[in-house]
């Protein structure tokens, strides 16, 4: 059952300063870009805000710019632009592959990098209509007080399902954040915490404006599992990057879809293990299985997702090393 959009006021600033001022004036406003996820959540009464600040008119956030340190990608750049960017494909192939795997082609026309990085967490008990959630006494993330996934726990287990984050994590991306007091930069990993209810560390009044990627000699790749080959959010996704100029080659692995945040995990650090050995891949598989904590947030069993994400990591590592 679908519901009409609630009443809201749409604000369409043309500069970042205007957007920051609008956000100061209405601190609970929802930031909107492509709206491919936000509009759906609005219809399901999952957004507690009566103001939408549409960031798509801010030209300064819409470009891909190479610089002496690497590449700066504006948060307003669409996934379609990333998918077709030779500049990104040359140096950061996992990022292009991740962008091309998001939703369907019509979503990617408008869905943005910033939107994918700030994507809200998802859960089978949350992404339902209002009447469904009401009949279930809502949940810990929104309007309720119990997490139906882990009723004895005290935090929300909803899973982060953005595809771009792991691909950017294996390339040491940093995010650029604008706020009332100016700009700040931090590693992308610090944008997230392991709490499905408040997984982003953005402070009130702050806007993610760009991602900075350092120059890279790493090769990289991304894959995910899902039921339907397009449109579906990932049940689990893995990005790997490899620097073959080092001996032994160094591997970076990042995952999404299994926890409330995307994260980088350490590759097997036993100095006796070389990527040339089968034992390395067995160790990697065990390590990924141990690091992730998929919960009953999707229709697919957590155990299957745990096994799959580890298998994906090994498959990608074999391909890339």
């Amino acid at each position: 059952m679908t519901e009409a959009l609630p009443q809201f006021t749409l604000v369409r600033p043309e500069t970042l300063d205007d957007a920051l001022i609008a956000l100061q004036a209405t601190p609970d406003a929802a930031l909107s870009a492509g709206g491919t996820d936000l509009i759906v959540r609005l219809r399901k009464s999952l957004v507690g805000s009566d103001t939408l600040i549409d960031l798509t008119g801010i030209k300064a956030m819409n470009s891909i710019d190479p610089n002496e340190n690497g590449l700066r990608i504006g948060a307003g750049v669409t996934l379609d632009q990333i998918e077709h960017s030779d500049l990104i494909a040359q140096t950061y192939p996992a990022v292009v592959k991740a962008a091309a795997s998001v939703a369907g082609p019509s979503h990617r026309q408008v869905a943005t990098l910033g939107g994918n990085l700030c994507l809200d967490t998802r859960c089978v008990y949350l992404n339902q209509s209002h009447w469904w959630r009401k009949a279930n006494d809502f949940c810990l993330k929104y309007q309720g007080d119990t997490c139906h996934v882990a009723p004895k726990g005290n935090r929300c287990r909803a899973a982060f399902s953005g595809d771009l984050a792991p691909a950017l994590l294996v390339h040491d991306a940093e995010v650029e954040i604008a706020g009332p007091t100016g700009f700040r930069r931090e590693p992308l990993g610090d944008l997230y915490v392991e709490d499905g209810a408040t997984h982003l560390t953005l402070e009130p009044g702050e806007i993610l404006v760009a991602v900075n990627l350092p120059a890279s000699i790493r090769t990289s790749d991304y894959e995910k599992i899902r039921v339907r080959k397009t449109v579906d959010f990932p049940l689990a996704g893995v990005a790997v990057a490899c620097d073959t100029s080092q001996e032994p080659p160094r591997l970076w692995v990042a995952v999404t879809g299994t926890n409330s945040r995307p994260f980088l995990l350490d590759p097997p650090d036993d100095p006796m293990l070389s990527p040339a050995d089968e034992a390395f891949f067995i160790a990697l598989q065990k390590q990924v299985q141990k690091a992730v904590s998929p919960q009953r947030t999707t229709m697919i069993a957590p155990h299957y997702r745990r096994l799959s994400v580890a298998a994906l990591a090994v498959r990608l590592a074999r391909r890339i090393l």
Partner: peptide, 22 residues
Amino acid sequence: GGECGACTVLINGHPRLACITL
């Protein structure tokens, strides 16, 4: 809800979903 594509229209020549477009 943006999942089936039945509402696909072209906006400036690009495919878009009318059910999730303001």
